[in-house]
Amino acid sequence: MLVLLPPSETKRDGGDGPPLQLDSLSFPSLTPLREALIDEVVALAADVPASRRALKIAATLDGEIERNAALRTAPTLPAIHRYTGVLYDALDFGSLKGAAAERARSRLAVGSALFGLVRADDAVPAYRLSAGSSLPSGGTLAARWQPLLEPELRRLAAEELIVDLRSGSYVSLGRLPDAVRVDVVNEAADGKRTVVSHFNKSHKGRLARVLAGTKAELTDAAGVTTIARRAGFQVERRGNDLTIVLSS
């Protein structure tokens, strides 16, 4: 089983790994576009106003542009430690121990606008590039990633179950219709349901932790539903679409 996580806009600083080595990353079929995007992002960082426009950030975040300028020389961290925020706090990878941590390392992967897809232990630098960024070379990142990322995802799906927890903009970089998908909704006392926004990330992080660490070898959506329910989630399933229901 492979659990696909969204990245986060926020990244942990620094690292104790050597500078980025693209040939050491998983999924080598993605290397040509990774190389091209890094070249573009590093070159773009020399023009701060243009970088702000492309990355859709304010001047208060110019430190992110400095990160991009140093992409090839900055220290690295394993991807699972580089990304931060609500989902990663709930996942709490660092507290997994022993066999559960090893299972999580093999099962977790992160979608990325810069790298396409990386596994938990892939060493990456801090950077700023989101699925909605608009690089000067033109075209959307989705249009550039899909021809490479979608075949890679289909190859993976032929070998193991994929649970896709990515957000919509990152799903667009590489679509996989047969993946198990998860939504989070809130159900009011009158039965009315609304899509959860902030807590969506928290609950997906908790689910990712359960799936990553379980001893069970899951092969279908029914198995994912069973494990989630055992962990205390209220889950409804329709085919490969799972809905986590929260009660208000």
Rank of each mutant, 00 (worst) to 15 (best):
D13G: 02
D13R: 10
G15M: 07
D16K: 10
G17Q: 10
P18D: 15
P18W: 11
P18G: 07
P19F: 04
P19R: 13
P19K: 12
L20V: 04
L20I: 03
Q21T: 00
Q21E: 14
Q21A: 15
L22Y: 05
L22Q: 09
D23K: 02
S24A: 15
L25P: 02
L25M: 02
L25E: 13
L25W: 08
S26Y: 06
P28D: 14
T31V: 02
L33D: 11
L33K: 03
R34I: 00
E35H: 08
E35V: 04
A36Q: 13
A36H: 09
L37D: 07
L37S: 08
L37Y: 08
I38K: 07
E40D: 10
V41E: 05
V41R: 01
V41Y: 04
V42E: 12
V42A: 09
A43W: 01
L44P: 03
V48N: 04
V48K: 09
P49Y: 10
P49F: 08
P49H: 11
P49G: 09
A50I: 00
R53F: 00
A54R: 03
A54H: 05
A54F: 07
L55N: 09
K56G: 06
K56W: 04
A58N: 14
A58E: 14
A59L: 05
A59W: 03
A59F: 01
T60K: 14
L61A: 11
L61W: 03
L61P: 00
D62H: 03
D62R: 04
D62Q: 03
D62V: 09
G63D: 14
G63Y: 15
E64G: 01
E64D: 13
I65M: 04
I65V: 12
I65Y: 07
